[in-house]
Simulated scan of single mutants.
Amino acid sequence: MRVPTARAQDVGTEKYRVGHGTLVPMPMKSPTVRHRRLGRELRRLREEAGLSTNEAALRLGWSLSKVHRAEGGRIMVSETDLTHACDLFGADSYTKGGLIQLARDANRRGWWTAYSDVFTGNYVALEAEATAIRTWETAVIPGLLQSEDYAREVIRARHPDLSAGELKRRVDARMVRKINVVGSTAPTLHALIDEAAIRRPVDSPDTMDRQLGDLLQVMEWPHITVQILPFSAGAHPGMEGAFSVLHFDPEDPAVGYVESPAGEVYVEAADQVRNLILLFERLAGACLSPEESAALIAAVRSKA
């Protein structure tokens, strides 16, 4: 019987895919915060034990690729594998218990898993654990700040072939995401928005009135900062496209994110993330102040 090559299976707490008749750990598009933290701890323990990746792979019975992906946080490590690794590396019981709990937390289902048909990457998992989010948008109001009617029209324009039910599900997912990420326990959000996004009519004047009104309301919240990049800024460093940078607790490196019609790109190399942060800061310096931005939004709304 022919074995499928892309079917996912669950074995214990670790996800696998079937390939060439064998089970291999299933990689993630980008590691979540807890998986990255777990991977760093595994690497630290291995290095303190004086073992190379080749030696660790041989003694654990893992492939070399599995060691690299586990240390990079790119596969879900089972508790059994984690226990064996901790024993090999000489971790004390306190450290082992902490890493096992971290693995359990990393593999716990988040709110977004109910919308796994909508959220196909790991961005929302990273976003849910961020302490600060910086985002630059060139053409639309950022998804986290969209009103329901506005979101519906944006999604409909991007996916014109969706059925009514599919469209509703995507809108619901975006609104649930907004509630979970922009609520009272939310991270700080600093959004830079091109003036074109607040002036572009989406659907009816009522839709834009509600959207701009919602935007003005959230701008009063202490953890949200919105700045508009005016047309008068002319050529600017953000003309090549939108991007986001997610910041976490000090021990967890920031992650950059770029989405395009061709797919998602996660930027994790320290120098590249630093360049995105510098780019964001230059853009923020070219934007209107939050107060001036609110005045411009209010003026545009009055004419919508």
Rank of each mutant, 00 (worst) to 15 (best):
W221H: 08
G39I: 07
P4W: 05
D172F: 09
Q101R: 11
A269G: 08
R44S: 15
I179C: 11
I198A: 14
A254R: 04
R59C: 02
Q9S: 08
L45R: 05
Y266R: 04
W136T: 02
G110L: 04
V171P: 04
G19R: 10
D149R: 13
F243N: 01
I179P: 05
C86L: 13
E153Q: 15
C287A: 15
I155Q: 02
I141N: 05
S260L: 01
A298Y: 02
L246W: 07
L126G: 00
P27T: 01
I224D: 02
T120I: 01
V176S: 14
S116I: 13
S93Q: 13
H20Y: 14
S184D: 07
L288N: 12
G61L: 09
G263Q: 03
G238A: 00
A157Y: 08
D214M: 06
E291W: 02
G12L: 01
R301V: 05
T131E: 11
E292N: 13
A85W: 15
V181H: 10
P253C: 08
T32W: 02
M28D: 07
P261Q: 00
Y16E: 00
R43H: 07
E251G: 03
Y115W: 12
V33E: 07
E48C: 14
L145P: 04
P4E: 03
M1R: 07
A233D: 03
Q146D: 05
L64T: 15
A191N: 11
G238S: 00
